[in-house]
Design a protein around this nucleic acid. Sequence first.
DNA 1: GACCAGGCACATC
DNA 2: GATGTGCATGGT
Length: 221
Amino acid sequence: MISKQLTEIYQLLFGSFGPQHWWPGQTRFEIVVGAILTQNTNWANVEKAIANLKSAHLLTPEKLHNIDVSKLAELIRPAGYYNIKAKRLKNFLTWLFNDYAGRLANLENLGTDRFRAELLTVKGIGRETADSILLYAFDREIFVVDAYTARIAARHKLIEPGAGYEQLRELFQANLPQDYRLFNEYHALLVRLGKEFCRPKAGCADCPLEKLPHTLDIEYF
DNA sequence: GACCAGGCACATC
DNA sequence: GATGTGCATGGT
């Protein structure tokens, strides 16, 4: 059974790495901003951008909604793709202010399906970003899929090669206990594993999943 | 200097 | 629906 394999993987990862304390962010808004800034970008660079926003005392929906997009772009420059990401942050804020009075708390009333669908209408918020916001900022039972998740699932033959985002999300989401704390920790552990053992040029020596069935010659993407 | 990093939108077939 | 491209910084 898939659920048994997923549970075994989780136990091996947690036993080896321990709790990852995700999401690394002080406030719900900081989590949302981080989710957008980390798109295809190393987290260390995102931290620099967020530090800039904090230093300028701009890390609130009101402040970011009101500052000039070019000023915002300059502040988040270390995160890379800074022009497009500044627009994406603005798109989120425009939606938040137009439809929800600029208050994240007003989003709490949304059912998860509706919430996800609405996030996906914002240009610049795709599936992974939406799901990260839902899980890590709003404690919704949505499993976040990223490049590491896909690599690891492929490497351990949990899913057919070529599976898409929704199939991967379904794999984890439907075969685990419905607990946002578990989804939170599991995804964080997969990223930890991916960074250390399941990336180009990384070896499998001392990988916590070394003894599980796997293949080395997978395509990275 | 090449390669990579917790994606996404858009064009094109 | 699948595939290709632009977007950009900072670490290895």
